[in-house]
Design a protein around this nucleic acid. Sequence first.
DNA 1: GGATCCGTTGTAGCT
DNA 2: AAGCTACAACGGATC
Length: 516
Amino acid sequence: MSTAVVWFRNSLRIHDNPFLSWACNSEEVDSIVPVFLLDGYLTSVRDGEIGFNRFRFLVDCLKVLRDNLEKKMNLELKIYTGGALRNIESIFQNLDGENNFLAYEYCNKPRGLMLSSQITEWSMKTPKNCIVKSFPAVHTLLDIEKTISSPTYFDPKSMKNMERIFMNNFDVDSFGYYNINEPIPVPNKTKTNANVSISVNDISISELELELGTLFPDRLNERHYFRGGEDEALDRLSRKIAKQEDFVNRFSKPRTCSTNLDDNPSEPSTTGLSPYITTGCISVRMLWKECEKAYLNGEHTKPPESLHGQLMFREMFYLLSRSVDNWDKSTNNINCKNINWDEYDSEKMDSWESGMTGFPYIDAMMRQLDETGWMHHLGRHAVSCFLTRGQMWQNWTAGRDVFEKKLLDADWAVNNGNWLWLAGVAPFSMPYYRIYNPCPDSKSSLNVETKHANFIRRWVPELRFFPSKYIFEPHLAPLSIQISSKCIIGDDYPLPILDRKKTRKENLARFKASIT
DNA sequence: GGATCCGTTGTAGCT
DNA sequence: AAGCTACAACGGATC
């Protein structure tokens, strides 16, 4: 009697799931226990490191995973909280028989890597015979460890570099596309569900929902813009990719902003798939292949702007997160220039995080982030530039933490990579003098209704009666306009926390002084 | 080996 | 009113 413990770490899905499929198909396995280990997750939520939307989304994902495992494979997902290593040990102590397996996916994060090696070490000592089977490239296209240990590997910092790495790892087919494996279908045979009766740290979905309600009682009735889980992910894939050939072929990341900043925040102008990629509700391989199907039918954009390009940047950050020491630090990180950022200023940081800087475009973005867990990529550029080298001169790690807490697509490798990039401290192409204007719509001065202005009215309702001409810098509006717009600046909406032109000039000089 | 090009997405001010 | 120009000027790859 041999049992496989199938440990879902990043990939909360049953399609294209190599470790689950292996357990279902292997002759060596008689029964299966699917598990998800919260590890320190609940502590992070309680400590305020993970916010409402992220927690809510994860619970959704787990619920759908549980239901799919039950409905389609007659397996019961077990969820445990507390230390992951201790969970694994007690699960195996309660398993009968020998030749039991632990099938899990590779994890790139420091804590995950440490757990992997601790588990391997423990498995070699355990008399209960736990055979560890680690599956690489479940959450990424590349096998991260294999790629970075290749003698030809070097830290990539451009799309050209990534293309070289892809060429070294994948053959190119007769159409000129990388030969990336087809996704694995949902296993069509299953095994019996092994019964592990450990009650210690066992936690149910309804207990998680209770916890969510206890921690965020005033947010439970909010509208949820993204529903978590594999079903929603596959549905979105079908809606936005499979049935949208033109959209896929024309996709160009820098030019997706014209349609996003409207009053329909539930439908981004990009794919809106990022929360599902982060949680592994959709497999990146499947997304890659779906894009390729559209590409085969005509002209299409290319990396870096294309959807394949976006996925390649994700691979780039996963590689760097492993090959660059201190990837998430602003010191002792070869990918981070030493900038003399100001001390953490909690007043400034609070106004940035809560959308009360007095810069409506910035505030609208930050309020959208808090309510929906999502922000358009150009908004991310604007608010991160504002926080760091543009205006506030705060360390990028402070902004990174806020994104980590609130973004549904928060991903350790990608989030840090993007902040390094946007703060201008990484060796990626970001000339430091390219500073984004926090009041960006030149048309507003002509009193033209713009998408940006409507976007601000949607998310900063204090300003909903303001004319476009003044909506980016409402403190410049004459008092008569403020009165007729029912919003007195400094009273109903904050005055700007800083002089954007003055800080821009000073910071440009400081940045230059820091790097030369 | 010095010059030139390039890098996923700039801004301000003028006409 | 969109398009031009000046700004400020990194750092590695390529020729």
